[in-house]
């Protein structure tokens, strides 16, 4: 480290020392790894992140418990239920929280960037990373990984909760049954992706309230509005909405008459994400900070 002696706040006469660059000065430069680390520090050091993730896990586990606990078999013989159907029910209980979780992580995604705009932090960020886009990519990567992992904790946790409750009622399914594992992974993946989509929107809008309104509008409102339009085109658009594709992807609900492959849904979600991030990148690069 360079050890130039500068006058400290309490010290009087400054000792003039050469502004010597230390031995490891060459190692001090912008790097992708550094930007990732920086964004990770930023993400974990604000309360909104901690709150959002805690809520996500709590909601998921709670909803899994409610959904599996409220299943009333009315004395039916569960041994007659095919294993495939048992697995589907366990999967539904395990991923039910994703419905609500997507709203929480969407808000978090917007706040991750709008918080920088509202506080002026963005100027510090962009002064350190004057090419700007690497900072956006790092932010997106960190947000995706963190949200995916917390999402996984909540879906796997929800599986543990619901399978514990349901096994008491005679319903069994292994986590590694593809009918369970795919939704559990897919739900977490979708949470990570929708958070990054929201980050893109937040970067475009630059305001917390505005960004949240736009994202929740796209996630919640547009599907409802389209469903209310009694026209064929509206119905045929439904599977291509980001939230519908995301939910279809982990097999909780279908919005299309013909079954859609999970990878098509994934592409649809990625398409929305790419559009959001592309808009964010263009504007971030072009606008004055």
């Amino acid at each position: 480290m360079t050890t130039t002696t500068l006058p400290t706040a309490s010290e009087a006469a400054p000792a003039a020392t050469p502004s010597g660059a230390g031995k490891d000065a060459a190692a001090i430069r912008l790097s992708a790894a550094g930007l990732i680390r920086s964004e990770w520090i930023k993400l974990r050091s604000v309360r909104s992140t901690v709150w959002s993730y805690a809520l996500l896990v709590a909601f998921s586990l709670g909803l899994a418990a409610i959904m599996s606990g409220s299943l009333d078999l009315q004395g039916a013989d569960v041994s007659m239920v095919p294993a495939a159907n048992q697995a589907i029910f366990v999967a539904q209980a395990s991923t039910f929280g994703v419905f609500f979780g997507q709203l929480i992580v969407a808000v978090l995604g917007v706040l991750t960037i709008s918080g920088e705009y509202s506080t002026g932090m963005i100027r510090s960020t962009l002064a350190a990373v004057p090419n700007r886009l690497p900072a956006l990519w790092a932010k997106a990567a960190v947000l995706f990984v963190a949200t995916f992992l917390v999402g996984l904790v909540s879906t796997v946790g929800s599986y543990l909760v619901s399978s514990a409750v349901l096994s008491g009622k005679g319903l069994h399914a292994s986590l590694f049954d593809p009918a369970v594992l795919f939704p559990v992974l897919g739900g977490a993946l979708y949470l990570g992706l929708i958070a990054v989509f929201a980050l893109g929107i937040g970067t475009i809008v630059r305001s917390g309230a505005g960004g949240i309104a736009v994202v929740l509008g796209i996630v919640l409102l547009v599907p409802i509005v389209l469903q209310m339009i009694p026209a064929a085109w509206a119905t045929s658009l439904l599977p291509y909405l980001v939230s519908n594709a995301g939910i279809n992807m982990f097999g909780l609900m279908s919005f299309s008459q013909v079954p859609i492959e999970w990878w098509v849904d994934l592409l649809v979600v990625l398409g929305w994400l790419a559009a959001g991030l592309a808009g964010a990148a263009v504007l971030l690069k072009r606008r004055d900070a």
């Binding site: 550094g34 520090i41 932090m121 350190a128």
Partner: peptide, 15 residues
């Protein structure tokens, strides 16, 4: 964010 975390995040970008 705390002052130290702010500085740590800024510092991390450049290692």
């Amino acid at each position: 964010r705390s002052a130290r975390n702010h500085l740590l995040a800024m510092a991390a970008t450049h290692g």
